[in-house]
Amino acid sequence: MLRIILLQLVAMVVAACIAGLLGGVSALWSALLGGMCCFIPNGLFALRLYTSTRKPGGANPMTFLFGEFIKIATTLALMGAVVWLYRGVNWLAFVLSFIVVLKSYLILLFRHRP
């Protein structure tokens, strides 16, 4: 799980750098904020699952379902906060960065191990 979260962090930084080069400072901040709207909830979800697996008896399905609900609610709350607090959002950079971070785990799925 830690590798996926670290990969999402790297994907967020790379997407923000590319957005900054192509669209300026507003695009850079928008891409960072879009990536964080995905990265932070996923990190909290992974932390919750990790701590629940360390408990006696391990994780149960309700832990996963409740964590997934919290992850979705946190994502929506962060997106709402960005829209409300940052008026200069570059929507293309914001949405594309969110999608890049959201789908970055596919890189690990197609990675070959000897």
Rank of each mutant, 00 (worst) to 15 (best):
L32I: 10
I5M: 06
M79F: 13
M62Q: 06
A31R: 02
S104N: 08
S26A: 15
M79Y: 09
Q8A: 05
N42L: 05
L32T: 06
R87H: 11
F110C: 04
G20E: 06
G58Q: 06
W29N: 02
P56E: 11
L108Y: 03
T75E: 08
S97D: 08
C37H: 01
I18A: 11
A15S: 14
Y105K: 12
L7M: 12
L28H: 04
L92I: 12
F66N: 13
L102K: 07
I70V: 15
G24M: 05
P56C: 09
F45N: 00
F98R: 08
I40A: 09
L33P: 02
G58F: 09
A77S: 10
S30E: 01
R111M: 11
A46V: 15
S30W: 02
N60P: 04
F45D: 00
P41H: 00
G67P: 07
Q8Y: 07
W91Y: 14
L85S: 13
R111A: 06
A73I: 14
M79K: 05
I40T: 05
G24D: 07
G23V: 03
S52C: 06
L28V: 09
V100A: 12
N42K: 08
A11E: 07
R48N: 10
R87L: 09
W29K: 08
C38E: 13
L9G: 09
A93G: 05
G35H: 05
L106Q: 15
R54K: 15
T53K: 12
G80T: 03
P114D: 10
A59G: 06
L109C: 04
A73W: 07
V95S: 12
G35I: 01
L21I: 15
I5A: 06
I18C: 07
R3G: 04
L76R: 03
R87Q: 12
L49W: 08
L92Q: 05
M36V: 15
Y105C: 01
K71P: 00
V13M: 10
T63I: 07
A19N: 02
